[in-house]
């Protein structure tokens, strides 16, 4: 495997949804998440991480070193036993107490085999503190650029579930969609933490790919049409970074160009990206 990454990164991902529900709110009967104060749509960090995991699992067939620890059964109902390559750990300092060394071995091994442990970290239930790994990749909540409106649709099914409802002939259901919403999410990748989990250049490539393609493999009746529209990456020259993150995020401006009419497509928005400051490379991946 290649070496851990040596640069800090920040990224802005713009994705949109058309006639779908990007992220249901369990508190509101699965309505699309909405910030009640502003009316803007919300997509949680964990929702996006799930999609990254699913994509990586799909591309690499759940094989180490790209196995996914936190699985969704729907995606993988395969019950095969995986064979793991044992690997030699470089001997750590002998002064450490025995169980801490053990914990390190376990976390190190997990990092080596599982992509999501390497990228996002994991909590391992060992007695010592060393059983927790923080991953280099960090997502914030995604928020829509403008207010989103939730459409409520009643739908019918020409069948019933229970025998006793037979004479009703059909059942009604309910579906909630956002007609259109453009969402913006910010992310961070820390090089020093990548060193701790062994998140490599190859892993980073895969991660960028997953951001661009994850919605293409997450089709369902509820989601509607979701697509990644823009991925802007800021690569710092150094490990610790060369510019404040918020200054970089401010370089990406997204504005509605359709006046007072409600936005209904990505074309209704203008996206502009300013020049990156010295020491930071701007990469428009999508």
């Amino acid at each position: 495997m290649s070496d851990p990454i040596k640069n800090r990164y920040e990224f802005v991902l713009l994705f949109d949804v058309k006639d779908g529900n990007p992220n249901g709110d369990p508190d509101a009967g699965n309505l699309p998440r909405i910030d009640p104060e502003t009316g803007n749509g919300l997509v949680t960090d964990v929702c996006l991480k799930r999609k990254v995991r699913n994509y990586v699992g799909l591309v690499h067939g759940e094989q180490p070193p790209y196995e996914i620890y936190v699985k969704e059964k729907a995606v993988l109902n395969r019950q095969h036993e995986r064979a793991y390559q044992a690997f030699e750990l470089k001997p750590e300092s002998k002064k450490l107490p025995k169980n801490e060394e053990d914990a390190r071995k376990i976390t190190g091994w997990m990092c080596k085999n599982f992509f999501d442990v390497r990228a996002f970290g994991a909590v391992m239930s060992t007695e010592v503190n060393a059983g927790q790994v923080r991953g280099p990749v960090q997502f914030a909540f995604g928020r829509s650029i403008d207010r989103v409106f939730t459409g409520e649709h009643s739908i019918t099914r020409m069948a019933v579930t229970n025998e006793k409802d037979l004479e009703k002939e059909r059942t009604m259901g309910r579906k909630f969609t956002v007609p259109y919403g453009l969402y913006r999410v910010h992310g961070f990748i820390s090089a020093p933490l990548a060193k701790q989990t062994g998140f490599s250049e190859g892993d980073l490539e895969l991660f960028w790919k997953s951001l661009q393609n994850m919605f293409d493999h997450d089709r369902s009746a509820a989601r509607g049409e979701m697509a990644a529209q823009k991925l802007i990456v800021f690569k710092h020259e150094s490990e610790l970074g060369n510019a404040p993150a918020h200054k970089l995020f401010d370089l990406v401006t997204v504005e509605k160009n359709c006046g007072d009419a409600p936005p209904r497509s990505f074309g209704d928005y203008d996206v502009a990206v300013g020049a990156a400051p010295a020491g930071v490379e701007r990469i428009e991946m999508l």
Binding site: E67, Y69, V70, K71, E72, K73, A86, V123
Partner: peptide
């Protein structure tokens, strides 16, 4: 999820070189 990676299981799988790890969110 309300579970953490069971260190014991990982150790067993690690030593045997095979096994089914992974946590099913459902």
């Amino acid at each position: 999820v309300g579970a953490v990676v069971p260190a014991g299981t990982v150790k067993t799988v690690m030593n045997r070189g095979r096994g089914n790890l992974g946590l099913y969110v459902e």
